[in-house]
Design a protein around this nucleic acid. Sequence first.
DNA 1: CAGCGGGATGAGAGCGCTTCCAAGGCGTCC
DNA 2: GGACGCCTTGGAAGCGCTCTCATCCCGCTG
Lengths: 346, 346
Amino acid sequence: MPEPSPGFRPTLEAVAARAGVSRATASRVVNGGAGVRQPLVDKVRRAVDELGYVPNHAARTLVTRRTGAVAVIIAEPEIRIFSDPFFSQQIRGISKELTEHDTQLVLLLLEGPGDYDRIARYLAGGHVDGALAFSLHTDDPIPEITRRAGMPTVYGGRPSWTAARDHQAVPYVDADNRGGARAAVQYLRDLGRRRIAHIAGPRDQTSAVDRLDGYHDVLLDADPRLIAEGGFTVESGARAMAELLERSPDLDAVFAANDLMASGALLVLKERGRAVPDDVALVGFDDMDSVAEATDPPLTTVQQDIEGQGRLMARLLLRGLDRDREGAPAPASVITPTRLVRRASA
Amino acid sequence: MPEPSPGFRPTLEAVAARAGVSRATASRVVNGGAGVRQPLVDKVRRAVDELGYVPNHAARTLVTRRTGAVAVIIAEPEIRIFSDPFFSQQIRGISKELTEHDTQLVLLLLEGPGDYDRIARYLAGGHVDGALAFSLHTDDPIPEITRRAGMPTVYGGRPSWTAARDHQAVPYVDADNRGGARAAVQYLRDLGRRRIAHIAGPRDQTSAVDRLDGYHDVLLDADPRLIAEGGFTVESGARAMAELLERSPDLDAVFAANDLMASGALLVLKERGRAVPDDVALVGFDDMDSVAEATDPPLTTVQQDIEGQGRLMARLLLRGLDRDREGAPAPASVITPTRLVRRASA
DNA sequence: CAGCGGGATGAGAGCGCTTCCAAGGCGTCC
DNA sequence: GGACGCCTTGGAAGCGCTCTCATCCCGCTG
C-alpha cells in the first residue's frame, strides 16, 4: 500500500476515474467483482492499490442499511466482566467468530441504571446490526429494549424468564448445566457414595438452578439438609461446606455448582480433617483453568467449552442477520454439551 | 417514547413535516437548537418524541466526518486481557469516560499476526475517530498502522520506543513506576534494611524497566546479586525468591516489581522459615485488589489508580480529537502518581 | 446478412443528514 | 419615516456509496 497524505481518503469516484471506468463498475469490483470482465477488474484493482482506497463505511451503511457491527451488552461489569474468566473467554470466542465474518464488536458496558436509556438510544440509532447480551435477571429491561429497537439479539446463558426446556422463545446459548450436574452426581453415586451433598449457586442465576435440578434428577428424594447455597465464590463455598458439615456430618460426597465453591469447600474439608477423596469425594463445575487443576487434590469437575459458547452466540446472531433479509425464521437456541473430567478429588 | 413499528425509523424529514418546519430547522433543534426560536424548538421536540425519532448515525457520520466511536486495540488477548485485572480496570475507566462523552467503544482484539492487516483496514475505513492501544513491544506494528491511517492514538503504558523522560513524542498514560519504586525502596532503607533485593519484571516491559530504574535510583551501587528477574506471575516470583535466597542469604528486604511476584516470594520466604517482616521486609507493587490484602501478612505495596489511568487515556484522546479540528497541538503524555500503602509485610 | 438475446457497462437516483447561502422579518438608528 | 443590519428560517447542495435501469455491444441464430 502506498502512503497518500494521511487523513485524506480517495473516493470510489477517484478510483473509477483512475481506472477509466464508471463508479458503478468500480463499486462492483470492490464488492467482489461479479459480472465485470477480467480486464476491467484488474484495472480497478490496480487503481485501488495505487490510491490506497478504502471504502467509506458510513456511506456504505447509509445505503445498505448494514453496519457490519454487533453490540455486546454487559450489565454490572463491576461484578462480572473481565474479573470473571468466564466472561473473558466468551468474549474471546465472540471476537474470533465476528472477526472471521468481518464484523466489529462494540462493547456496551452498563455502569448504572441510567445507562439503559443510553443503550436504548444507541441500539435505535442503527449503529449495530444485532446484539449479544449475557444472562440477565428476571426483570432486566434489556430484552424489552432490544425488542423495541427491533434488534436481533442472542443471549448468553438461559434467560431466567424462559422455561428451561423452551428453546424457542428467545435464542440463547447455554451449556447443558442440568445434564452436566446429572453426570457429576451420577458419577458420585456410581462411586458408591450415599450421602451426596450439593453446594448450589445463587437461586437467581439459571445456571445454578439448572445444576440443582440436575442434582435432583439423580437424587429424587434428596435430603434437604444435604443442600446449601453459596454465591459462586471461594468464600461462600467454604461457608456452605462448614454449614453442611454441621448439619450432615455423615456426608461422603459433595457436588459444588462451580469450581470456585468447590475449592472453598476443599479448604474447609481439609481443615476439618476430612480426607478428599477418601472420606469425602468432591466434584466441581466449569473446569476453570486457574482453579480446577491448581487445587490439592486437583478437582474432578464438569467441563464446558466456554469460548465455544461465545463463538456460537456470535454465529447464531450472524446467521440470524442473514436470514433476516431472506425472511427465514429466527434461529433457535443451542445447548452445548458438557463433559465430566476425572481428576483426583473424586 | 411511543412504539412505532419496530424496525421502521422515522427520518428527519418526517419530524420536520410533523413539526411544520424545514429539515434544516429540525436538524438544528436535534443538534442542540442553537439559533432557533423557542416555539419552534418546542414543536420539533414534540415531533421527535411523538415519532420516536433517533438520528441515523451513518448519515450523520457521512457528512460530519465524525463517528463518535473509539477503538480499543488489544494485542495478545490470550495473555492479558480480562484475565489480567489490570486491563479490565483500565477498560472500565475508558468505558466510563467515553460514555460520559457519548462515544462508543469498539473492541479490537488481535488474535494473531494476520490480524494487523484487518486492523489497518478497519482504521483506514473511517469507522472510528481515534484509538487507544496498550503497552506494546518495541517492534509492534500498531503505531505505524495508526500513523498511516492518520488515526489519533493514545497509548496505555509508556511505549518501549520512547525514552523514559520524553513525554512528547507519543501521547501515553502511565503510572509513575520509577517514582513508586523509588518510594518503596527508600521506605525499606528508612526501615534500616541494608540488603534490599529486587525481583524485577520482564525486561521487555517498560513498567518493569522503570521500576528497576527506581530501585537503582535509591541504591546507586546495588549488588547485582540482589536482583533477580521474574515474569510478573506468582510462580516466577517464587522462583526468583528462591534464587535470591541462594545467592544472597543475607538479604533483609525484598522489593518485588508487582504484587503477584511478591506473593510468590512470600510463600518461599515462609517455607524457608524467614519471618516477614521481621527477618525480611517485603514490598510489592500495584496494590492489586485480590492479592495485596489477601496474603498473610498483607502486603505493603505501591498503589496506582488503574481505572483512573483508563479514564485519562480516553480523556486525552477525546481532547485530542476536539483539538484536531481546531488545529491545536496534540496532547502530551500524563504520568499518574503512585502512593505507598503500608501494611504488615514491611 | 439481418435480427435477436444476453451479458457488461454507465448514468443517475437516492440513502438521511448537515450546512452554506439567500431570503425574509423585525427592530433600531438617524 | 426610511434605511440598514441582525437574527431566524428555508432551499438546496452534497457527503460517498449502492443499485436500478437503460444502453450498448457482442455473438449467435435463422
